[in-house]
Amino acid sequence: MKKILSVLTILTVLTAVSCQKSELKDVVNADNFFSVKQAAIASVNGPTTATVNQNVTFTVSWPYTGNCEKFSKFEADSLSDTTKIKLFTSTNIADDCTGKEVQHSSVYKFRAKKAGTYFLKFVGPDSNARPIVDTLTVK
């Protein structure tokens, strides 16, 4: 009986300690104040021709609400001549983010390693929406 009581006491203490550590981690972790989401893409502007190994820049614009939403990153998936590009934004949910709806933009860089025709497909979070496709001819 004493052994069972001792084991239960130890398990209870360990469970309580692990709960306290996770709660403390949540308070200390500042990343919990940031919300990252995939943004809808409003427009893409860039060249239609380039040379091999040339850095090509595309200005990607997206609508956002409030003054707290900022560019976070691009994610690109390439499959042969097609590159699927997603844009992500972050918002600090602890800030006051009231403001009018405006449009933001950021620069996406692309470099082709060989000649050919490349299709840059800029997609938003809604799978039913049509992506914006830019065609780049590389010589």
Rank of each mutant, 00 (worst) to 15 (best):
S6Q: 08
K109E: 07
A39S: 10
G46T: 10
T15L: 15
A115Q: 06
A76L: 04
I93E: 07
M1S: 12
V28C: 09
M1F: 08
S22D: 14
Q54N: 13
K114E: 13
R130E: 15
P131E: 04
S43L: 13
Y64L: 06
I41A: 02
F122S: 02
A112Q: 01
T51H: 13
N55G: 13
E101V: 15
D31Q: 13
D26P: 15
R130F: 10
S22G: 07
P63D: 02
V27T: 14
C19Q: 06
I10P: 15
L14T: 11
P63N: 05
S43C: 10
V17I: 06
S90Y: 01
L11Y: 05
L5V: 12
K73T: 12
K2C: 14
K84T: 13
T82Y: 11
F34M: 09
K139M: 07
C68L: 07
D26N: 09
F71D: 06
A16H: 06
D134A: 12
D95W: 04
L79P: 03
A112K: 00
V27L: 03
K84V: 08
A129N: 06
T98P: 14
D31H: 08
K113L: 14
G99W: 01
S80A: 14
K100Q: 12
T51S: 15
T51D: 15
F74A: 06
A94T: 12
Q103A: 15
S35L: 06
F119A: 07
F88K: 05
V7T: 15
E75K: 09
T9V: 14
V17M: 11
T59Q: 10
T12K: 10
